[in-house]
Design a protein around this nucleic acid. Structure first.
Lengths: 221, 221
DNA sequence: GTCTATAAAGGGATAGAC
DNA sequence: GTCTATCCCTTTATAGAC
């Protein structure tokens, strides 16, 4: 996104930027492709030439979010040494990127329930996105000494937690979504507390069982 | 749904049944109101006379699912005494009701991400549905001796777990969604195991903290 | 009150001309 | 690479039959 170059890239970016602006201001469903084309000063067909569907514009935004998240999280990882700061960096940078775009996220959300959809969060076509997202959490916990089975599944579980927090974020009407920030911080504190328990021999059987269940279900690697 | 009576009820039910059949066979987006009207043998206007929108037909289905779940779960509760059977009844009856309607569920799913939508799962308009759903889980654990704070939040947490299982169900391509059944059974076993730990004094602080966090976030009562 | 027939506004998507 | 013209669909609306 926003890379410059040939003339076509200029038009494409112009249409994209206009569309995202309208989606943010007016909402996804409320914005028509005709609006986008008109405001961008191109014909309807031109908009469809660059974006095969209205949804594909949102898909572009999804990529942008992933890139931004990776960039910002890694930037903060350079200075964050302890687990708390690193988990905090991983989740809060994501919220930073999405702050103000909650209406757009609603449009993304709808793809999640359709296994056949190209943009479904859990479908094969978006596996790369998921893995990239989990990778950020893997980097957050990279230096931690943890039982191997825990370390294997932790990134995916943190990714799942982060998805839950994003859902909360979507519904959070508090100013600047402060409640979500608090929820995230609280969740991190719980993780830190759980981290101490997780290696205890008493916990081992239930831990093994839980991870085994998730593995069998294909929910974790 | 399916209640008989006046002539209008007959037509209404006929349109509803036809629409659901087409949604199941062809998919929600692929089925047009014109298809529904045509297959039901009524004019387009008649279909819109009974259902103000295509979505409102799906909303009707949602009510039907809730009613059926309550009915079937309570029927099984009469014979199920231990916690395992009662949790099993609560979740498996829901899956029974939804079995074969996964395409329809995809259509329902999309409402979940839009806080402004009348049919959003987490919005104020559907609170009754959520509470009714949690009520079934409350009945499943009614006879259990549990710390009061746990007993207060358990129905909501079980409801959340059940929502997660339904998401898995949506994506489960195994024949008759056997994998989801296994996942549900495994989750129940984990709950039984956790049930033994939950009252331990060592666990108390982290438990209090976790529940406090959920309360502050407004996620549990 | 229940429904048919019909039209038309508004919007997603496409074919093909330029 | 861009635009015009067009199709199909949802939805709303209306006039009138039963």
């Amino acid at each position: 996104m926003f890379k410059q170059g040939s003339k076509s890239d200029g038009t494409r970016n112009h249409i994209l930027a206009t569309a995202l602006r309208l989606f943010r201001e007016t909402g996804f469903d409320e914005t028509t492709m005709r609006d986008v084309a008109a405001k961008a000063g191109v014909a309807l067909g031109a908009a469809y030439y660059y974006f095969p569907s209205k949804e594909s514009i949102v898909a572009e935004y999804y990529k942008y979010v992933q890139d931004q998240h990776l960039l910002r999280a890694r930037e903060q990882f350079l200075l964050a040494k302890d687990l708390r700061s690193r988990l905090s960096a991983a989740i809060h940078t994501k919220l930073d990127v999405l702050q103000g775009d909650r209406r757009l996220m609603s449009a993304l959300f709808r793809y999640g329930g359709d296994p056949e959809h190209r943009l479904s969060w859990f479908g094969p076509e978006t596996r790369e996105h998921r893995e990239l997202s989990a990778q950020i959490f893997a980097e957050a916990i990279a230096e931690q000494k943890l039982p191997p089975d825990v370390k294997d599944v932790a990134p995916t579980l943190l990714w799942a937690l982060h998805m839950g927090i994003l859902l909360y974020f979507l519904y959070d009407k508090s100013s600047e979504q402060k409640r979500t920030r608090k929820l995230a911080d609280g969740a991190i504190e719980l993780i830190l507390q759980a981290r101490r328990f997780i290696s205890f021999p008493v916990i081992r059987p239930i831990r093994k069982r839980a991870i085994g269940l998730l593995r069998e279900a294909g929910l974790v690697p």
